[in-house]
C-alpha cells in the first residue's frame, strides 16, 4: 500500500488556508507521526485523507487511485480512522460499536464470520471481557481501545489516528502506542498518527512530519526532525534533549 499526498490545500473559509500545500508519502510497514502546535493543520490533513473534508486543491492517492473517486465502502476497506473525541450520544454495547467497523463488508445481516472477527479482535486486545458492557460506561482508555478495535474490524491497510493518547494515563498511552507499533511491524500496515507527545513520537515513529501553520517545516527520521532548532522554530520553546547511546532521547521543555 502506498499513500501519496500531493500539494494538499484546505481552508475552512475561502480566505484563509489551514493546510497550505502539504505533500508526503506513506507506505505499508510505516508509522508516521504528524506533529505540530494546535491549529497547525494536523487533524485537517488526516480528515482530508479520509474524505471527511475535501481538499480545495491537491490530490490524495492510494495505490495510484485518487481517494476522492473511490466508493465509500471501497475506501472504508482501505482506510480506517480513529477520531479525537467520542460522540457522547453514541450508545450500545462494545460488540455493537466494534461491529460498526464491519459495515463495509455487511449488506444487512451479520454473518457468523463477522461475529468471529469482532470477537477475535477483542480477544487479541484483551477486551473480550467487555464485549457485552455498555460503551458509555467504560473509562476513557477503554473507550479509546474499543474505537481502535472498531478500526481494526474494518481490516484496512492504512490507519489514521487522531490524537489517540492525548487524554490517557501513561499505561494506556503505552498500550496504544505498542498496539500501533505491532500493527506496523507484524501486520505490515501503515499508520498515520496525530500526536503531541514528542517522546512517544520519537520512540514509536518511523517518520515524523513537523507542521507549522499548515506547512511542513521538516520531515524525515524522528531524530533528524525533532531537534532543538526545529522545536524552537515551530513551538517557540527551548527544550533539553536527554540522550545517551542506549535510550531514545527524552525531550524536556526548559521553563524559566
Amino acid at each position: 500500500m502506498e499513500l501519496h499526498v500531493e500539494d494538499m490545500k484546505f481552508g475552512y473559509t475561502k480566505k484563509s488556508l489551514v493546510v497550505k500545500g502539504v505533500s508526503f508519502s506513506a507506505r505499508s510497514g510505516q508509522l508516521i507521526s504528524l506533529i505540530g502546535p494546535n491549529g497547525s493543520g494536523k487533524t485537517t490533513i488526516v480528515k482530508c485523507i479520509n474524505k471527511i473534508l475535501k481538499p480545495q486543491s491537491g490530490t490524495v492517492s492510494l495505490d495510484g487511485k485518487n481517494v476522492q473517486k473511490m466508493q465509500p465502502f471501497e475506501m472504508a476497506q482501505c482506510i480506517s480512522y480513529v477520531p479525537q473525541f467520542t460522540n457522547s450520544y453514541i450508545s450500545g454495547s462494545v460488540m455493537d460499536i466494534v461491529m460498526m467497523g464491519r459495515r463495509p463488508y455487511i449488506k444487512w445481516k451479520i454473518s457468523e464470520e463477522d461475529i468471529e472477527i469482532v470477537l477475535s479482535i477483542l480477544q487479541e486486545l484483551e477486551l473480550d471481557h467487555l464485549a457485552h458492557e455498555q460503551f458509555q460506561e467504560l473509562s476513557g482508555g477503554q473507550k479509546q481501545k474499543i474505537l481502535i478495535a472498531r478500526a481494526l474490524a474494518q481490516k484496512p491497510e492504512l490507519y489514521l489516528f487522531d490524537e489517540p493518547i492525548s487524554f490517557l494515563d501513561i499505561k494506556n498511552q503505552i498500550d496504544i502506542m505498542e498496539l500501533a507499533r505491532n500493527m506496523v511491524v507484524k501486520e505490515k500496515k501503515a499508520v498515520i498518527m496525530v500526536v503531541h507527545d514528542l517522546n512517544m513520537a520519537m520512540r514509536y515513529s518511523d517518520q515524523v512530519i513537523l507542521l507549522k501553520s499548515g506547512e511542513v517545516e521538516a520531515s524525515g527520521l524522528p531524530k533528524s526532525v525533532l531537534n532543538k532548532k526545529h522545536i524552537r522554530t515551530v513551538y517557540g520553546v527551548d527544550i533539553k534533549i536527554i540522550e545517551d547511546e542506549f535510550i531514545t532521547p527524552i525531550y524536556e521543555p526548559c521553563v524559566n
Binding site: 479520509n50 477520531p83 453514541i90 467497523g101
Partner: peptide, 10 residues
C-alpha cells in the same frame, strides 16, 4: 457515532 465516524466507515 457522529458524522466523521460515519463517513470513515463508508
Amino acid at each position: 457515532a457522529g458524522e466523521e465516524t460515519a463517513i470513515s466507515i463508508g
